[in-house]
Structures are given as C-alpha cells and as structure tokens.
C-alpha cells in the first residue's frame, strides 16, 4: 500500500507538461512534413477533382460543367490516340527493360575482377538528366548525320527517319526510355539476385546442374516477386512519360500524332490552350489508371520486400 502511494505521488509530482511533452514533441516533429504534404499535394489532388468538373480558362472565373469534360474526353478521338500511344510506349518500353535488366543483373552478379567498375558504369545513366539525354539521343537519331544511321549503313540498311518518320518516332522514344529505364530495374534486380542463398547453388552443383539449369531452377523462382514488382514500377513510370516526349518532339507529340502521349495532351490543354478543367479531367483518368496499377504494385512490393 505505501509503496503504491509513493509511485502515485511521484507520478503526480511530475508537472503536467512533462507527461504531455513526449506526445507533443512527436507531433511537433512530424508536423512540418504533414502540413507541407497537405498543402502542396493532398489539397491540389482533391482540388483537381473539382477542377475537372468545371470549365476554367485561367483568366475567367470557373463555371460548373458537371461531367461535361469527361463526356467530351471520351468522345475526343485524340484522347484515344494518346491513350493508345501511351499504352504502346509503355508495353514497348517495359518488356525490353525487364529482359535487359535481368540479363544485366546476372552479368553484374559475376564475381570477377573489376566488377565494381562495371557496376558503376552501368548504373550511371540513372543520374543523367532526361532532358540532356533526349538532346544527345536526338543527335544519334539524326537522319543524315546521326551515328545510328551510319552504323546501320555499314550493315547495308537504308537511312531511317528516326524522329521524322511517324512509323519510327515512337520507337525512337522507346529506345531512349529503355536506355534510361534499364539501370533502375537492374539495381533492384541485382539486390534480389545477390540475396539468393549460396547454399541453394551449392546443392544444385552437387546434383550436377549447369549454369542455365541453375538460372531457371533457382534464380528465376527466387526473384520472381521482385521481377513482378519491377515490372509494375516500370509500367507506372512509362505510363507517365513526359520529359522525353516533350523534348524530342518540341512539345508537339509529332510527327503528326505519332508520339502524342497522355502527358503531352495534358500539358497542351493546360498550358497552351488554358483549358484547365479539361486537362484536369485527363489527369484524373490517368490517376485512376495509375492507382489501379499501384494497387497491384503494393500487393507485390510486400513479397518483394521479403525477397530483398
């Protein structure tokens, strides 16, 4: 009894603020982040939903439009062109990214002298500005003086109008996007490959399995969750393509509509035609598509995290 009292007394003796403070300081520490994310991200996101239900040409006050923007959007042939181009770009980028990054992760996982150097070089495109790389690739793609056409001419291939021929323009964007996307996937896949326990390979060696057999029987099943995860983040990133398309086509999505992707469409409607409501509607459609993809990704990332 007396003992209990002592404890009680000492608790009561601590000033009120001291019991309150541990909680309060926790809130205070996270407050700047939360306020900033509410103001600069959450509020704009909700606001754009409202925006998409209005006609707003920036200089005049918004007028309520209901679902008119969405109705117009689905009737707009250019929207379907943009969606189709974006889907083509995404599929065209993601498949080579997965295959090539898997191969490069395996190559970089070799225990060879100088492997650190090769890793550093292969990961380097990660830090190179997309805008600068777009400018550099535009020279490589140049029809008359580009390195690519010269290399192809050695093999007897006729000049290709990489960025001037509507059949090739989207493929050219895909090439650059693959070049830029492989290192990111490689970093993640390499980490997964390195985490496959050695004893599995040892056991397989004892059973006489060769390199190819080991890859299909051990490596691939072990890193499958990570591959699935990398697949989805590559899809999400490719679907948002903008920088590359904007720089390489001078903001037009041309030639014709051959590289007219959703990112370009949003930008043009918002910042060229000042149709803020319509552009916001496109963005919400994009957001819902991406949200669906993210949902898949979240389910996969849990297993990928176990994998790493």
């Amino acid at each position: 009894m007396p003992r209990k009292n002592v404890i009680r007394k000492s608790t009561n003796a601590t000033p009120r603020y001291a019991r309150f403070w541990p909680h309060a300081s926790g809130y205070l520490f996270v407050l700047p982040n939360l306020v900033a994310v509410a103001v600069f991200l959450a509020f704009p996101l909700i606001f754009s939903l409202y925006l998409s239900l209005t006609n707003w040409e920036l200089l005049t006050p918004p007028t309520w439009a209901g679902l008119a923007n969405y109705v117009d959007l689905f009737a707009d042939p250019l929207f379907w062109t943009a969606l189709w181009n974006t889907a083509l770009f995404t599929i065209g980028s993601v498949v080579p990214i997965i295959v090539l990054s898997l191969l490069s992760a395996l190559a970089l996982n070799q225990k060879l002298f100088g492997i650190g150097f090769f890793r550093a070089v292969v990961f380097l495109p990660l830090v190179a500005s997309t805008v600068a790389m777009a400018v550099i690739w535009m020279w490589l793609f140049n029809t008359d003086n580009g390195l690519l056409n010269w290399l192809l001419s050695l093999a007897g291939v006729e000049q290709i109008g990489w960025l001037t021929d509507p059949h090739w323009a989207l493929i050219s964007l895909i090439i650059v996007s693959v070049w830029k996307g492989v290192p990111l996937s490689t970093v993640i896949l390499l980490a997964a490959v390195q985490n496959v326990p050695d004893r599995l390979y040892d056991a397989a060696s004892l059973d006489g399995a060769g390199v190819v057999r080991k890859f299909f029987a051990i490596t691939l099943p072990m890193i499958r969750p990570t591959i699935a995860f990398v697949l989805v983040i590559s899809i999400i990133q490719s679907f948002q393509v903008f920088d590359l398309a904007y720089v390489m086509t001078n903001g037009s999505g041309g030639p014709g509509t051959s590289t007219y992707v959703l990112g370009i469409m949003v930008f043009q409607h918002a910042f060229r035609f000042y149709e803020m409501g319509y552009a916001a509607a496109i963005q919400w459609v994009v957001f819902l598509i991406l949200l669906g993809l993210t949902y898949i990704q979240l389910r996969l990332s849990r297993s990928a995290e176990d994998d790493l």
Partner: peptide
C-alpha cells in the same frame, strides 16, 4: 504518440500520387 503508425501509413500513401497528375492544381496554387 497517438495514431503514429496510422498517420505514417497515410503519409506513405501520398507516394501513390504521381507528380505529373497534380501539376495543374499545383500550378493554380
């Protein structure tokens, strides 16, 4: 602090909002 982990999860969920999707309302802001 109360609700710490819930707040954290909600905060983490904002990663799902791609930069390209909110650029218009951010410009308005």
């Amino acid at each position: 602090f109360y609700g710490r982990d819930k707040v954290f999860l909600a905060y983490l969920a904002t990663l799902m909002v791609p930069a390209t999707v909110v650029i218009i309302p951010q410009f308005m802001l």
